[in-house]
Write a protein that binds this DNA or RNA. Structure first.
Length: 719
DNA sequence: GTGGCGTCC
DNA sequence: CAGAGGGACGCCACT
């Protein structure tokens, strides 16, 4: 091996004395992983470091020794192997120390004295009257519904529970229906008496995920108002990634209490009971506890939020007002053309079968194209194709980028690529979506999750409407199946370059601000600056490169990543990046500032004060630290964009609500920087204008926000 | 349940 | 020099 290479690798490993001193620390701590160390070291021989290395050299790294040379020199191989063992070992020790730091800093849960609880079950009108009166007079009450299903479109109400003061709560059952069930109050009676309270915006309520309760109540013609707090959202705003935000986790973390789990009373698996089948004796303590825990969680979480004004504002100005908006969007649902999708499924199926035959022919035998394992076997063992890249576990990768490269020289990878993309479309979309149509409404009702992502974005599931294909022609056919009903049109309104605009605003870089202020095509402007040409002279290739740079910056990408993206050398990619930072120095300063601020404070913030903690920002492990640094760069931009569209959704919904019965327009989807509305044809002009204005005015930055709106009979056409 | 892959912004 | 792009969810194979 070349001397220079070996030296460079050694230098990269850093101070081995320090590594061994860390090792001593680990030993003396008797950290739980420490005793596994000898085995860990022994594993090194097994894990194929050399082959990984060879693959790496072949890929990109300009070492002054070629793979062939290395393969012929056992001494070089040994030396290199040893170096890699040490590097791996160092990483491993760092991970141990980091995770140990993290454990030490975790506050132990608050252990409250076990207070006596007073849970009751309301079975008589007299008891109900008593509670109604107390709820009327309460400053705030906790509220929870018990239902037959997690699906908000199907759920039937079985009972409700309330809490006004800690350790005291009541369950009011009205639809348990097992054999021998005691007399309960009538559901219709109960709801009629509760309706004025639940609809009164002045009566403040707290709940855990009240969006669900609101959606279920809407099925009984009750509009939940007075949503003052939501413990799930309180926890999320306090620390989006600190834990999950379900009630059982929160109770354990913040109250030190283990709650009754739904499975404890309903069982699990196939024989799981629905709530109406659970005895009132068992349901009572569970349901009452839910309300009690919710109230006590709120009393724990809210003071901590209100100590931090910006966090309290994120909760009160964004997340809480968004709850009813999301509930309405979900219940509105999207209309899809199931016939069209079924047709597409058939066509896709035929083409997939053809491709499978071709693949088996090319391979010389039958195999499962969907199995990366079997495919790797065929490609790399049977057919002897070169291994371009490996998965983290050491298996040859068959990811798209790899197959694209192989497809240049071999026939089979190309077949696999088409097979993969079509199978994906069929199984995930054209087969699946028609099965998700609600039988009552004939529409698709997704769930938006408000307390999932690290950055403040929403997520969507069952089905996920935020990853419907758009890039390929076949994919766009799926969007064509998202349609407007007769007499209606779909509007798709999306923010133009919102994250780059936010980068311009946050960094206050003059060049970038100017580009947006003058309404330039920002990628074209970037290209002109970086490549030193006039705006008009920017070639399409230069624009493409500039676009990759712009997006790379938002994600904290390295020269290596950019080089790979653009299929250019790392040095040239670095050159581009250097040029960019010369032209937009404010951006460079901002990136450095945000990283050091994150390192100092341990978190980053959006423009509106939403916080994301980055515990790994000071990790000893370089990889983990760098990953945290990339997040530190990305999260303020992604998170601010999320804040802005949430504000827009609230404003647009408010506007539509105020119009009341005079409009038939409704929001039906949100896809991160886009809102989709279904609008009666007669209102198109009015709604388009009002929508654009409200979205663009959702935040005031140093430069304008621009919203592009398209319309059509289907979602594809609306773009 | 996990890992690999692929879809979106 | 190592690995080297932020945030999600869903399907499939495999264990």
């Amino acid at each position: 091996m070349g001397e220079k290479t070996a030296l460079a690798i050694l230098q990269g490993l850093g101070d081995m004395d320090a590594i061994y001193s860390d090792l001593e620390k680990v030993r003396s701590l008797e950290f739980r992983g420490a005793k596994k160390m000898p085995e860990k070291l022994a594993e090194h021989k097994e894990q194929g470091y050399l082959s990984r290395l060879l693959a790496t050299i072949k890929l990109d790294v300009p070492l002054d020794v070629t793979a062939d040379q290395l393969a012929n020199s056992p001494e070089d191989q040994d030396q290199l192997l040893n170096l890699f063992k040490e590097a791996e070992f160092k990483t491993w020790v760092e991970d141990l120390l980091d995770s140990q730091d993290a454990e030490a800093s975790d506050a132990s849960p608050v252990q409250e004295d076990k207070a006596e609880t007073h849970y009751s079950t309301i079975l008589t009108q007299a008891d109900f009257d008593h509670w109604l009166q107390r709820l009327q007079q309460a400053e705030l009450f906790a509220f929870d519904t018990e239902t037959t299903s997690l699906n908000y479109m199907q759920a039937q109400l079985v009972g409700v529970s309330f809490a006004i003061s800690p350790h005291e709560a009541a369950y009011l059952p009205f639809a348990h229906d097992y054999l021998g069930v005691p007399d309960q109050l009538e559901r219709a009676d109960v709801l009629a008496q509760l309706k004025p309270l639940l609809e009164n915006p002045k009566l403040a309520k707290v709940g855990q995920n009240l969006k669900y309760d609101m959606s279920v109540l809407a099925r009984y013609d009750i509009t939940l108002r007075g949503i003052a707090y939501d413990t799930m959202l309180e926890s999320y705003v306090l620390n989006s990634t600190g834990s999950r935000h379900d009630m059982d986790t929160l109770a354990l973390t913040h109250l030190g209490e283990s709650t009754i789990h739904f499975e404890d009373i309903a069982g699990k698996g196939k024989g799981q009971l629905t709530f109406n089948q659970i005895t009132i004796e068992e349901a009572g303590p569970y349901a009452a506890e839910d309300a009690d825990i919710t109230l006590r969680l709120h009393q724990n979480l809210w003071p901590r939020l209100s100590d931090e004004e910006s966090l309290a504002n994120v909760l009160s100005d964004i997340e809480i007002p968004l709850v009813p908006v999301l509930s309405r969007i979900e219940r509105n649902g999207a209309l899809i053309d199931a016939y069209k999708l079924n047709e597409q499924s058939q066509q896709l199926g035929q083409r997939i079968d053809e491709l499978e035959l071709q693949a088996h022919e090319a391979a010389g035998k039958a195999f499962n194209l969907a199995s990366p394992k079997q495919l790797g076997e065929i490609l790399f063992t049977e057919l002897g194709l070169p291994v371009v890249k490996k998965t983290p576990k050491g298996a040859p990768s068959t990811a798209e980028a790899v197959l694209v490269e192989l497809a240049l020289d071999y026939p089979l990878p190309k077949i696999i690529l088409e097979h993969r993309s079509l199978s994906k479309l069929k199984s995930t979309y054209t087969d699946k979506l028609p099965t998700m149509i609600d039988p009552d409404t004939g529409r698709i009702h997704t769930s938006y999750h408000q307390a999932v992502t690290a950055t403040g974005r929403l997520s969507s599931s069952d089905p996920n409407l935020q990853n419907i294909p758009v890039r390929s022609e076949e994919g766009r056919r799926i969007r064509q199946a998202f349609i407007a009903p007769a007499g209606y049109t779909l509007l798709a309104a999306d923010y133009s370059q919102i994250e780059l605009r936010i980068m311009a605003h946050l960094s206050a870089d003059k060049g970038l601000l100017d580009a947006f202020a003058h309404g330039l095509d920002v990628h074209q402007a970037t290209a002109a600056e970086v490549f030193g040409v006039e705006l008009d002279a920017v070639s399409s290739n230069q624009r493409r490169n500039a676009k990759a740079i712009n997006f790379g910056l938002i994600y904290g990408m390295s020269a290596f990543g950019l080089g790979r993206q653009l299929n250019i050398g790392r040095n040239q990619a670095q050159e581009y990046i250097n040029l960019y930072f010369e032209r937009y120095p404010g951006v460079k300063v901002y990136m450095e500032t945000i990283k050091s601020s994150a390192a100092e404070k341990g978190y980053v913030e959006t423009l509106f004060g939403r916080r994301l903690y980055l515990p790994q920002i000071n990790a000893r492990n370089g990889m983990q630290r760098q990953a945290a640094e990339r997040t530190a760069i990305n999260a303020p931009m992604q998170g601010t964009a999320a804040d802005i569209i949430k504000k827009a959704m609230i404003a647009v919904d408010q506007w539509l609500q105020d119009k009341g019965d005079s409009t038939g327009a409704k929001i039906i989807m949100q896809v991160h920087d886009e809102l989709v509305l279904e609008v009666p044809n007669s209102e198109l002009e009015d709604i388009t204008a009002g929508l654009k204005q409200r979205m663009e005015d959702a935040a005031t930055l140093a430069i304008p926000l621009i919203v592009d709106i398209g319309s059509g009979k289907n979602w594809d056409e609306a773009h």
